[in-house]
């Protein structure tokens, strides 16, 4: 399969890339890892007039901790996320996620920024970022603009990025002591999208009370989804088997999966309940 014709630019600075975006408007697409965009172009679901390849733009690939904030450059490859010692030590949930994203070759190309900017609820990082309460940094001609993750996803393949903006960084608050997190998705085979997935991060204080919780769901809604009612049920309470089950049930009710080859709506809701339950338990285990 061959994509429709397009013009190709490979800018060597961010300013140049933003200038090209501004100049060419809606007809231009940013090429990061390309493992969502190129397949869509080959199938002609996407036919951009101009592709702006930012792989040659320096300074967009890093994982660092800076003043209580974890900062990940948008062009950081999934394989770099997978093998980062900093993430392994402080954010084991990234290990859960990255090994489930596609396969090793795809992870060598795919980027964390692209995974988010694609705006697809079937991708894994959106749910993770909802659970971790991330902020994404959009850089445009007016400079940098922080966008809280809850305001980032607007619809299917639609995000809060403006026409001249590029997602350049992801910021995640380094959580308090007593925090644990976990992610899992049910997939039919390596490389498939999730039948359902759940990301959980929670903090438990020394009295056993949950003082912070984030739950994100993968591929069970048109837009990446936060399980708000489930979070509210656990927040400021003891994490007991009883309220874990109740929270899981609420997540299953609140999501809106559609039936496809991966299963019926009923099955997917049931899997959401199972995954939310297991990931809360695993996150609690990891607080220790």
């Amino acid at each position: 399969m061959i994509a429709a014709s397009f013009e190709y630019d490979a800018p060597s600075t961010l300013e140049e890339a933003i200038g090209l975006l501004k100049q060419h408007g809606d007809g231009a697409k940013i090429l990061a890892g390309g493992h969502s965009l190129i397949p869509m172009m080959k199938l002609r679901f996407a036919s951009p007039e101009r592709v702006i390849d930012i792989n040659g733009v320096p300074g967009l690939s890093y994982i660092k901790e800076d003043g209580g904030v974890l900062k990940i450059g948008a062009m950081t490859r999934e394989s770099e996320v997978e093998h980062s010692d900093l993430l392994k030590k402080k954010f084991p949930i990234f290990g859960d996620v990255s090994k489930l994203i596609a396969d090793p070759q795809v992870r060598n190309m795919g980027t964390i920024g692209g995974n988010l900017a694609h705006g697809d609820a079937a991708n894994d990082h959106p749910a993770l970022m909802l659970a971790l309460r991330a902020t994404v940094i959009a850089t445009g001609q007016g400079g940098k603009r922080p966008i809280p993750i809850d305001e980032f996803f607007l619809g299917l393949f639609a995000t809060a990025l403006q026409q001249d903006e590029i997602l350049t960084e992801i910021q995640i608050p380094v959580p308090a002591k007593g925090t644990g997190s976990a992610y899992h998705k049910l997939e039919r085979k390596v490389g498939d999208y999730a039948t359902a997935g759940a990301a959980v991060q929670l903090t438990i204080n020394d009295k056993g009370i949950c003082t912070d919780i984030g739950i994100g769901l993968t591929n069970v809604s048109a837009t990446p989804m936060r399980a708000s009612r489930s979070e509210q049920l656990i927040l400021n309470n003891q994490v007991t088997e009883e309220n874990i089950s109740a929270a899981a049930q609420l997540a299953a009710e609140d999501c809106s999966p559609s039936a496809d080859l991966r299963g019926s709506e009923e099955y997917k809701r049931a899997m959401v309940a199972v995954l939310v339950k297991r990931m809360i338990r695993k996150a609690v285990e990891r607080t220790k």
């Binding site: 190709y8 493992h35 190129i38 080959k42 070759q105 795809v106 060598n108 190309m109």
Partner: peptide, 26 residues
């Protein structure tokens, strides 16, 4: 031809990638 099967795997700067999902210009 959909980046599933890996038959097109090559090394790009030493990293294994699926060459059906890269542009030659890359």
């Amino acid at each position: 031809d959909t980046s599933n099967c890996g038959a097109c795997t090559i090394l790009l700067n030493g990293k294994s990638v699926k060459s059906c999902t890269l542009l030659a210009v890359q």
